[in-house]
Design a protein around this nucleic acid. Structure first.
Length: 476
RNA sequence: GGCCCUAUCGUCUAAUGGUUAGGACACGGCCUUCUCAAGGCUGUAAUCCGGGUUCGAGUCCCGGUAGGGUCACCA
């Protein structure tokens, strides 16, 4: 009989959510959803100096965008109380009292200067500093004004199992009498997260590898409290694209909502991120959120860190955009170019669907240099460029006049790319495709690069197409 | 420095001890109506090094090397 899986994502509200944080949230959420368990969003705001206003809302907004829902969170307390640590101070005090009563917690009697001297001395002697070397023989009564430390119950080698890394262990050097409650009354992360995980029934703790080396300390605290130890899963880091370092804010790790603003699909972003450090065990890469939940297996998570590759994210986004209906695709585009007329948009849609990887790019398509820029603005150009590879200007002029002749009879309502092509194609085939198609396209767009001439004509409409062709003839 | 972790194409990754070491991104080539994209096909490209175990090692063991993490009244 397996106990219900309970996981949590526990960020501190110190600014925006970056890629690494979100990926941790995704894995914890997937493990819970895969097992029909519970996912908790807990806010670890025990360092009031580092707190950034608005972070809690921002974190929630980021997770909501990605479709990561929580069963308990800052807005949804549980039987265990609030999911915001600063509102749970009584819980930590109670746990601290248990340790004090057992003789396993004591107030730190030293001043900051004394402590600093201990550090210096250890450094001078070239040995690692351990607070427990200075543990007082007799514990004072804790009045709440001094830091409260754990009396490490047993100095020994700890071994434990990690769902990702396998069997891990560390020697007694990793153990020390760490601080449980700071002199300002707030608990440390080391203490608070364990108390909360117990109170909230967390069964699986997923976090980054920076916590591996403090795991023995956590284990000693579980021992001291006599609590059960949850399963641990250490996630690999997301690296900078040069692979030298963990991706951090200084390296351009963006606010995840920045990707939303650029027009990435949440499902694509989620899909790409989950593939850094995990795979479904087969060749599938483009997957829906539902497919990913089905396939998710914490045992298939990588041990080594992986680099974040924005190129592949773009590709992934395009794959997900391809799956969208025209209506949804159009809605995604319109946010970025609200002033383009509905008609043009509908006709240009196939071209746009082909070319952009991210919705935000639709802005550049209609810009001066963009591939659809000709729709809104016909640039001036050198008439000589109307000729295809050495064809004379006189012949080019004839070709364009012929095109005008061929297009004239088509009714404006029938002015589709197929109809236009059908009208022009036979002539182009006998005359030389380049000789006809290049000048036609150039006369319509005034630029070297664009979609094919039939589509361009269709997008412009009959009236504008004929006008531009006549203008070109006039130049020759 | 102590302790700990990691190591397959440039990148993300696959491979019950037996495969020509597979896929994807990127890159190159070709094709697909003129250009540019998109798409299709295709090519280049990897088991960090050295020992051992084994008929056989990317896979197991040992030792190096390289990279990373951590040693806070931060999380």
């Amino acid at each position: 009989m397996n106990k219900k899986v309970v996981t949590r994502f526990a960020p501190s509200p110190t600014g925006f959510m970056h890629i690494g944080g979100v990926r941790t949230a995704i894995f914890a959420w997937l493990l819970a959803r895969k097992n029909k368990g519970t996912f908790i969003l807990r806010i670890e705001d025990t360092d009031k100096d580092r707190e950034v206003a608005g972070s809690i809302e921002h974190i929630q907004e980021s997770l909501r965008w990605l479709g990561i829902d929580w069963d308990y969170g800052p807005d949804k307390p549980g039987d265990f109380g609030s999911c915001i640590q600063s509102k749970r101070l009584e819980t930590y005090k109670k746990a601290a009292q248990i340790l004090i009563d057992k003789g396993l917690a004591y107030p730190d009697p030293y001043s900051a200067e004394e402590l600093e001297n201990f550090h210096k001395k250890a450094e001078a002697e070239k040995r690692p500093f351990l607070y427990r070397d200075h543990r007082p023989n007799k514990f004072e009564v804790w009045d709440g004004t001094k830091p409260l430390r754990l009396k490490t119950p047993e100095i020994k080698r700890y071994k434990w199992h990690d769902l990702v890394r396998g069997d891990l262990e560390a020697g007694p050097e990793a153990l020390d009498d760490f601080i449980l409650i700071k002199s300002d009354g707030y608990p440390t992360y080391n203490f608070a997260h364990i108390v909360d995980d117990e109170a909230m029934g967390v069964t699986h703790v997923l976090r980054g590898e920076e916590f591996i080396s403090s795991t023995p300390k956590f284990l000693s605290l579980y021992d001291a409290l006599g609590w059960r130890v949850p399963a641990f899963a250490t996630l690999p880091s997301i690296l900078r694209d040069d692979r030298t370092k963990k991706l951090g804010k200084r390296d351009g790790a963006k606010d995840v909502l920045e990707y939303q603003r650029e027009g990435y699909l949440a499902e694509a972003f989620f899909n790409y991120l989950v593939l850094i450090g995990w795979n479904p065990g087969d060749d599938r890469e483009v997957m829906s959120r539902e497919e990913i939940i089905q396939a998710f297996d914490i045992g298939k998570v990588q041990k080594a860190g992986g680099a974040f590759d924005e190129e592949k994210l773009r590709w992934m986004n395009k794959q997900h955009m391809n799956r969208l209906s025209n209506e949804d695709f159009l809605a995604g585009c319109k946010k970025f170019v609200p002033n383009i007329s509905e008609n043009i948009f509908d006709r240009a849609l196939p071209v746009i669907r082909d070319r952009i990887h991210v919705f935000g790019e639709v802005r550049y398509m209609f810009g001066r240099e963009g591939e659809l820029g000709f729709v809104t603005e016909m640039p001036s150009f050198d008439p000589a460029k109307l000729s295809w590879k050495g064809e004379s200007l006189a012949d080019t002029s004839l070709h364009i006049k012929k095109i005008l002749e061929l297009l004239e009879p088509i009714a404006p309502a029938d002015f589709s790319a197929d109809q236009i092509k059908a009208a022009i194609w036979p002539y182009a085939e006998v005359t030389g495709k380049g000789n006809v198609l290049w000048p036609m396209r150039f006369a319509l767009t005034g630029r070297d690069k664009s979609p094919d001439p039939f589509i361009c004509a269709n997008i412009l409409g009959k009236e504008e197409t004929l006008k531009r062709l006549r203008d070109a003839v006039a130049l020759l």
